[in-house]
């Protein structure tokens, strides 16, 4: 039988003995030990290219040297092969919704988000992985996998080197792509169409 959790292990059952002076004072039970660490955040090579392009309203991906798969945001590596991905490709700001989540909780530091909101995996046309983005401009109950979306950008004079340039993704109104070719299924559909094993 596992031990009763209300009974401490025998070795730990001893009471602490205190000097007289502390016999009648309220004991300290907790202590605040704040931590503050300052870092110099550097986005790295692949991200820098991606973020710099954002200032020009361009979305860059990187292409796998192995099979041409396109990664966005680029991280300098094809994670399937551990292969460096030095070549950038420009991608359109349209795509479709893969998996998504209707969230009814606030996010720390994002008081601007109205609840509920939809965070979704955005699969850009021409990209082979998705990234998280906010979907808006549509009732949350209407969002669906395969729905076509386009980026809604900040005004040109507010653009910077940041992914925050895209305020959210809104429906284009085009017909959905089939669920079997959406999100993470897109790669297999593409391989099948090319006559290769997925």
């Amino acid at each position: 039988m596992s031990a009763d959790p209300s009974i401490p292990p025998a070795a730990l059952s001893g009471e602490v003995s205190l000097p007289e002076k502390l016999a009648d004072v309220e004991p300290v039970r907790s202590v605040r030990t704040p931590i503050r660490l300052e870092y110099d955040f550097i986005p790295g090579s692949a991200s820098s290219g991606y973020l710099n392009a954002f200032a020009d309203r361009k979305i860059l991906g990187q292409q796998s040297p192995v099979d041409g798969a396109v990664f966005v945001p680029p991280r300098g590596v094809d994670p399937r092969h551990g292969a460096a991905t030095p070549d950038y490709v420009e991608l359109p700001d349209t795509g479709h919704v893969g998996g998504f989540c209707v969230t009814r909780l606030p996010i720390p530091g994002r008081d601007d988000l109205e609840i509920p909101y939809v965070s979704a995996w955005i699969h850009l046309d021409g990209a082979d992985i998705g990234f998280l983005g906010l979907v808006a401009g549509i009732d949350t109950s209407e969002v669906r996998m395969g729905m076509r979306v386009r980026a809604v950008w900040k005004p040109d004079d507010e653009l910077g080197c940041t992914a925050e340039n895209i305020l959210y993704w809104e429906p284009t109104g085009e017909p959905d792509i089939p669920v079997t070719a959406a999100g993470t299924n897109a790669w297999h559909a593409k391989q099948a169409a090319a006559g290769e094993p997925g």
């Binding site: 955040f41 991200s47 895209i166």
Partner: peptide, 11 residues
Amino acid sequence: PFSVSINAGAG
């Protein structure tokens, strides 16, 4: 920095 904060935790 530079990224969009819409990560509402593991859920």
